[in-house]
Design a protein around this nucleic acid. Structure first.
Length: 692
DNA sequence: CACTATTCCC
């Protein structure tokens, strides 16, 4: 302590006495302000320690604020400085909360706030609240936010406009639109930030219409919109996909002479691409003098989402820095347009090149591509990568993993993921219900739906589609009807076309065909035509097919996929594109002979098109893509592993019998995903109990 | 001593 309290004579230019408590204008403060790098700041820090100036709380707070807030600062260093201050003043506490609030660890801001309340002699003031409320908003904690709101009111700070604005932002981040609006209306003198908080928050929460309405109200009340306002308004236009409105907003910005900074230009660019006008976007892009990574990524995303992959790739190659968001834009562009293989190969390229590190968003897109393809090997690798990297499962990732495992046929692994997490939002629950439904575990799906209702998570439209789907796959007619009838009166969800097609399915299978009819829906028609075909009502089939021809609905070509050692093999009905085609067909012949000797009779009633000649019918049946995949799988999938096949259409009855027999005669487990559900074949039986 | 609202990839 002695060395610290004894200024070294050789040192200080402005070496001083220790009685600086009231000296708020010490020359060293000027030096702190003028620091341009961390080593300069470090020198001042060292000097202040030597001179003892650091032990004056006010002076320490000056140094600490600089170490926390200057552009070159690091949070680690700032924290070390704070921990050295024997008795931090209120300003220092506030600053620490402030930097944590906008750091990767906002929770720390709340913990520091609590420490301050318990350990320090200070009460939170009007500066403390905006910082700590921001921290609560960052972690989306409604209950912490509510507690802070209460504390602010108790501290007689409920009318402070900064605090109110922070609360608006908090409530909107947590999805509590009503509370946000209540705070907003209570503000006596709303400033531009109050309006901006509401407008941007509503636009982000999907209430674009309401956001735009508020923008108009703002004008009527005579509050002048600024550039931040316009960013929010443009984001609302983008969400509405309203190009005309977006163009009007751009001309409004020009007319009103609103400052157009880089962020606002980027928001305009984003609006143009989201609304589908690459021409407008390109024109603006070429005009922009300053561009940053967001500019490039926005442009790249625009091309990728509209299917212009070549141009998107060119943008990726041209941009100054390929960060992960840029890769994500291209990967998700492929994935969302159904180009799963391209998405995965790009993901692979990213892994190989190590140009950027995959993040949660990358993995969500990649997992979704695996789910579409049924590529479980790759999906498992991604799951392993998540664990390896210690990436925490958020609800997005959890949903994607459950969806991937379910759609790849491993419902047990999907359940493992579901039970391993402690946070489940409506999408996580819905995905798990969907998984159980597609595996024919209708009862379990309904049980899960009941358990969901013991939580605070409210079911949405998707949840109901999945619940009805579960009823349909498990033949739960009574339950299906009950849920359907409860949707609007009990849950306030208006049934949409998906819910109606589930009901067509449910009622159709129960032989209550007259109860199901339906709006223009391809799926429902195909389903209905299959129901007719099954019951032998060929008149009905031709009538429906004719209607489909007239209305231009097409049945896709049958296609089956199988993944072996991370390579995806694809078979079309009757195709001989596969390099091992010859071998596969001879294996198929062998299978048919063996099956026939075991009593198998090809079942032609499942043919949708009437083919006159018997032999032709049998031939057509044998060419079904899932049979080719089974023949391939028997040869190339390890004996200890199930043969997993993904079919894009519904499996036909004949292929179903073949798969059952193969599972017994060859003693192999076959897991087949068709368009609607999974079939687990083993020992001559199927999990669907022949009801699908 | 100071605070709140801002664009891209799921």
């Amino acid at each position: 302590m002695e060395t610290l309290s004894t200024p070294l004579p050789s040192l200080p230019r402005y070496s001083t006495s220790l009685t600086v408590n009231n000296d708020h204008d010490h020359p060293v403060f000027l030096h702190i302000k003028q620091c341009t790098n961390s080593s300069q700041l470090g020198q001042i820090h060292a000097q202040m320690l030597r001179t003892g100036l650091f032990f004056d709380p006010y002076s320490a707070s000056k140094l600490f604020a600089a170490s926390a807030l200057l552009p070159f600062s690091s949070l680690d260093y700032a924290r070390r400085v704070f921990d050295q201050i024997p008795k931090p003043n209120l300003h220092s506490w506030n600053t620490l909360i402030r930097v944590y609030a906008s750091s990767p660890e906002p929770l720390q801001g709340i913990l520091i706030f609590l420490r301050m309340v318990h350990e320090s002699p200070y009460y939170p003031n009007k500066f403390t609240f905006p910082f700590v409320i921001k921290a609560a908003a960052e972690i989306f904690s409604l209950c912490v936010g509510q507690a802070l709101h209460g504390l602010a009111i108790k501290a007689s700070l409920g009318a402070d406009v900064f605090i109110s604005n922070s609360l608006i932002h908090l409530y909107l981040s947590c999805g509590d639109l009503d509370s946000a609006y209540r705070v907003f209306t209570m503000i006596g003198e709303k400033d531009v930030v109050s309006w901006n908080s509401m407008i941007t928050g509503l636009a982000q929460r999907g209430c674009a219409e309401k956001a735009f309405q508020l923008f108009q109200e703002m004008e009527e009340e005579g509050v002048k919109p600024n550039d931040v306002t316009m960013v929010g308004v443009l984001s609302a236009c983008a969400k509405k996909l309203d190009l005309e409105l977006g163009r009007w907003v751009c001309s409004y910005i020009e007319r009103k002479g609103i400052r157009v900074d880089l962020t606002l230009s980027n928001a305009m660019l984003d609006m143009y691409t989201k609304c589908g006008s690459l021409e407008d976007a390109k024109r603006l892009f070429d005009m922009m003098e300053e561009k940053d990574i967001v500019t490039w990524t926005t442009m790249l995303d625009g091309y990728a989402k509209l299917g212009e992959y070549e141009t998107a790739k060119q943008v990726l190659d041209t941009m100054p820095r390929q960060d992960i968001a840029a890769w994500n834009a291209l990967i998700s562009g492929y994935e969302q347009n159904g180009k799963s293989k391209e998405a995965l190969s790009l993901y692979h390229e990213l892994q190989q090149s190590q140009i950027a590190k995959p993040d949660g968003i990358t993995l969500v897109s990649a997992l979704s591509a695996c789910a579409q393809l049924g590529a479980m090997g790759i999906g498992e690798c991604i799951h392993a990568y998540v664990k390896e990297q210690g990436i925490k499962l958020n609800c997005h990732l959890t949903t994607s993993l459950i969806d991937m495992y379910s759609k790849c046929g491993d419902i047990k692994k999907a359940l493992d993921v579901f039970y391993s997490v402690d946070r489940r939002d409506v999408f996580v629950w819905s995905a798990m219900i969907a998984g159980l439904a597609m595996h024919g575990q209708g009862r379990d799906a309904i049980d899960l739906f009941s358990r969901m209702q013991e939580t605070i998570i409210k079911p949405n439209s998707v949840t109901f589609t999945n619940v009805l789907c579960a009823c349909s796959h498990a033949g739960l007619v009574k339950e299906g009807k009950t849920f359907f009838n409860q949707m609007e009166p009990v849950y306030g969800i208006r049934p949409g076309v998906q819910h109606y097609s589930c009901m067509v399915d449910i009622l159709g299978r129960a032989g209550l065909l007259e109860e199901a009819l339906d709006p223009e829906n391809n799926g429902a028609y195909v389903l209905l035509s299959n129901v007719y075909a099954k019951t032998g009502k060929w008149d009905g089939v031709s009538r429906i097919r004719k209607h489909m021809r007239v209305t231009g609905l097409k049945k896709e070509q049958g296609c089956s996929r199988i993944e072996v050692n991370g390579v995806i093999h694809e078979f079309l009905a009757g195709d001989n594109c596969h390099p091992l085609s010859k071998e596969i067909y001879s294996k198929l012949d062998e299978i048919v002979v063996r099956l026939k000797s075991a009593g198998y009779v090809p079942n032609k009633s499942h043919l949708l098109q009437l083919i006159e000649e018997d032999e032709m019918q049998e031939h057509a049946l044998n060419l079904h893509s899932e049979k080719l995949a089974i023949a391939f799988g028997l040869q190339y999938v390890e004996v200890s592993q199930p043969i997993r096949i993904i079919k894009n259409l519904r499996v036909c009855g004949d292929c179903h019998s073949v798969a059952k027999l193969v599972s017994r005669l060859y003693n192999r487990e076959i897991i087949l995903r068709d368009r609607y559900r999974f079939h687990h074949f083993s020992g001559g039986n199927c999990s669907c109990k022949d009801f699908w």
